[in-house]
Design a protein around this nucleic acid. Structure first.
Lengths: 356, 356
DNA sequence: CATAACCGATAAATCGATTTTTCGCTGGTG
DNA sequence: CACCAGCGAAAAATCGATTTATCGGTTATG
């Protein structure tokens, strides 16, 4: 067993002198080099055990250009999606003997770049960046300019400099379209965040295309908030007020991101509309609570594990020097239909309904 | 502007030779030592600017015993509470020029200890540990044995070796008791996780004491799952089955932790019980969704910012060498009463009710 | 006038590992 | 018998900073 001397940590030289060999030999034994006499190797191992020696990763990383640190930058830590993502990435990095340093850009591109600069200072071996906006922000530019190796995930489609991994938003949206149209919806509101250009476009177009194919007469309204979530609340409020006056309000809402789903729900609640009787609701991003509330909220589940797994795999390949053009990878989502989606006109409408 | 040579990063020696001084002088200028001729200082600053030089934190940390790294260990990253906590801690560490390395113990004490060992390898200056179980686990033991400096937060009350910061569970529970008893509830179920001994006891006893003071005839049932969340679902199912047969089911449920609230909700939904007509519900830990669902779920809000702030403050004081006995700090919670809590017998009971 | 004190700056040691170079020794070969 | 190849291990260089010791030169002091 290791001796618990709450003194200075033993260094590789302490081990060396205990084993009667040089520090270089200790390093070789520990890194599995075979050109060491078995007897000496054993003595080193014994000394390591006796002293409770562990390699100092900082000192170890000192001498190599690429250090065994992976940086991860997420727009936030508060949501299940990014929480799971960090958790997955951490485990994956750990498996390969790397340390994950995670940071939150707090939905700010400026902060994103600062964090990236700090990670560059640390000379991380690679970065997993989930950009606030998209692949063309200043952060990606910084990475390019400084020759950092990295992978972009989530709010990104494809890039000419970095590999990307994201959910197949378009296909998932098509499936949502099939489901809603199939239930008889012919007037649907889509809410999103304009900032996340590429992703939003993919989700919106995937939805629109399939919906129009299935029902050419369908009406699709779109409410986008440019930058932040709070304005969306107001936009939505205005939208519903107008539609209610006009007597032509939508029978279903498709939210392209989690906060949008929350905003929609709170707007429904303000107006006393209930799902799915008064209006149907489905949103991108699943959450644990969505299956325990009344009604259970339908959602598109993003394949967090797959995204994390692929991101790390491609990242490590690049770290190991693999060349070739960047790849854009899309992982399929699952659509979970739940009670918040029904057929229009199924229940007693409380608003000025458009029952067919 | 910095020259963007995607070559090797400039080192302190590059700066030194550009400025025509020694590396030591550069180091002094950058660390604000005043015994440098202003002219030389300016030349150093110019060279730094020209080359785009930035200190390598790894090399810089190499030579000091306590490195400018803070470790944070959370039981999970997936919940809003710990997500916010990590986010706060990260910002606070950053403010002081430290890097936060966060890791998830994934609710495992074994992993907790492994992570701690890795952080010890990194020679972190300090650790913020949110233990899986309580302050007496192997992780805290490891920290003690290795003379690490740290703070324990959340699922912890007080410790004889480390400072602790946590929510004032007892007072919050007392307030919940006042609210529920005030609404007329006389039969209340409390659900929790036995594993988190100290915290659960504080929450339970705080509730029980106040409830009994206000209504000596009150009946308080307790369902605790020892280790994991899933068993709780079964225990709860059994409990409700028995109570429903007996015709004496509780009129309110108080969950001592977030997952318990979710389990309770899903059990209500299985039985077709609605809040607050059939049963009232309030739980520890708030979440964003709780205010947008029907009904909105009442919750105890833990003061994340305050806990994080105090934890970091006391941690840095210890890092700077402050002595004295460990302090146990309690931060007050806020109780948000929402629609999920009503008076017993207010609405049409669907089960075998106990209307008064 | 010799020595001490001081200032600013440089050279060198240090942190703890890894990697390259060097070295001593054994055994085989011409 | 001299020389070379091969092996295992030690010595030394290296990574990029910080910190301590040292040093030349000027000024104050006895």
């Amino acid at each position: 067993m290791a001796v618990e001397t709450q003194q200075r940590r033993p260094s590789i030289h302490d081990v060396a002198s205990h084993a009667g060999v040089s520090a270089a030999t200790v390093s070789k034994v520990l890194s599995g080099v075979t050109t060491v006499k078995p007897e000496n190797a054993q003595r080193v191992l014994d000394a390591v055990e006796l002293l409770g020696y562990r390699v100092d990763p900082l000192a170890s990383d000192m001498r190599r250009a690429k250090r065994r640190i992976i940086g991860a930058i997420m727009p936030e830590f508060e949501s299940e999606f990014f929480g799971q993502m960090v958790s997955e990435l951490e485990g994956l990095a750990e498996q390969r003997g790397y340390t994950l340093v995670a940071a939150s850009s707090r939905e700010s591109e400026a902060r994103e770049k600062e964090i990236l600069a700090r990670m560059h200072d640390w000379r991380v071996a690679g970065v997993v960046l989930a950009p606030v906006r998209n692949e063309h922000g200043p952060a990606a530019g910084f990475m390019k300019a400084n020759g950092m190796t990295g992978v972009l995930i989530d709010r990104v489609l494809a890039d000419d400099a970095f590999d990307t991994v994201s959910a197949d938003s378009a296909s998932a949206s098509a499936e949502v379209a099939r489901a809603l149209v199939g239930q008889g919806h012919r007037h649907i509101l889509v809410v999103g965040l304009g900032q996340q250009a590429a992703t939003v476009r993919a989700r919106l177009e995937g939805f629109r295309k399939t919906a129009l194919e299935l029902a050419p007469d369908i009406r699709i309204d779109v409410v986008l908030s440019e930058s932040d979530v709070e304005p969306l609340r107001m936009l939505l409020r205005d939208y519903f007020s107008k539609r209610e006056e006009g007597g032509d309000r939508p029978t279903a809402v498709y939210s392209l991101f989690l906060k949008g789903t929350l905003v929609a729900l709170s707007e429904f609640r303000r107006r006393g509309w209930h799902c799915p009787n008064d209006i149907s609701l489905i949103g991108f991003d699943d959450a644990e609570w969505m299956q325990v509330t009344w009604p259970a909220i339908a959602a598109v589940v993003q394949p967090v594990r797959e995204i994390a797994g692929n991101a790390m795999e491609v990242l490590f390949r690049r770290i190991e020097g693999e060349g070739g053009p960047p790849r854009a990878r899309l992982e399929p989502c699952k659509v979970l239909m739940r009670e918040s989606v029904g057929s229009p006109g199924d229940g007693p409408h409380s608003g000025g309904g458009d029952r067919q």
